[in-house]
């Protein structure tokens, strides 16, 4: 049987009333500590690049690449899922988390083969991020050009 709309709404209210709430403060502290630490590690490489004489605009993508490699390596070592379990978005939001989503999918679907497993499913989680970042980026760029002319950035 499918509950009527009234029954379903009433049950939904009961579930909302009875459901446990996420530990917001604890989650926030974990996200802050781990997210901050990952960024501080990134800062170490950024400082190195800057000391090496690179301008900031070139150092930033280089550091992103280094952090992505670290995120992928920690995934391969089986460490990143444990960090993420506690740190939530503190592990998912840094670029290392993006690398984790790609490496974990690649590893998981290796058993379905290199083409249709790894190749096709590598972007299972990261795909939407790239798709909507590109779409939003284009819209933002176009609006920006309309407002301040093509030279602005």
């Amino acid at each position: 049987m499918k509950a009527t709309k009234e029954q379903a709404d009433e049950y939904k209210r009961l579930v909302m009333r009875r459901s446990p709430r996420p530990a917001i403060l604890r989650n926030a502290l974990w996200a802050f500590g781990v997210g901050g630490t990952i960024c501080a590690v990134g800062q170490f490489f950024l400082n190195l690049a800057l000391l090496g004489g690179l301008p900031l605009t070139e150092a930033v993508p280089l550091v992103a690449g280094v952090m992505i490699a670290i995120g992928a390596a920690l995934t391969g070592l089986g460490v990143y899922d444990r960090i993420g379990k506690r740190a939530g978005m503190g592990a998912a939001l840094p670029i290392t988390g993006f690398a984790n989503s790609i490496a974990s999918a690649a590893m998981e679907f290796r058993r379905e083969g290199l083409l249709l497993g790894v190749g096709a499913r590598l972007f299972t989680i990261a795909g939407p991020v790239i798709v909507y970042a590109l779409a939003a980026g284009l819209v933002v760029a176009l609006i920006r050009m309309l407002v301040s002319g093509p030279a602005g950035s």
Partner: peptide, 9 residues
């Protein structure tokens, strides 16, 4: 999700 994905349940 994949086993090694760092997700918070």
């Amino acid at each position: 999700f994949p086993a090694e994905f760092g997700i918070q349940r």
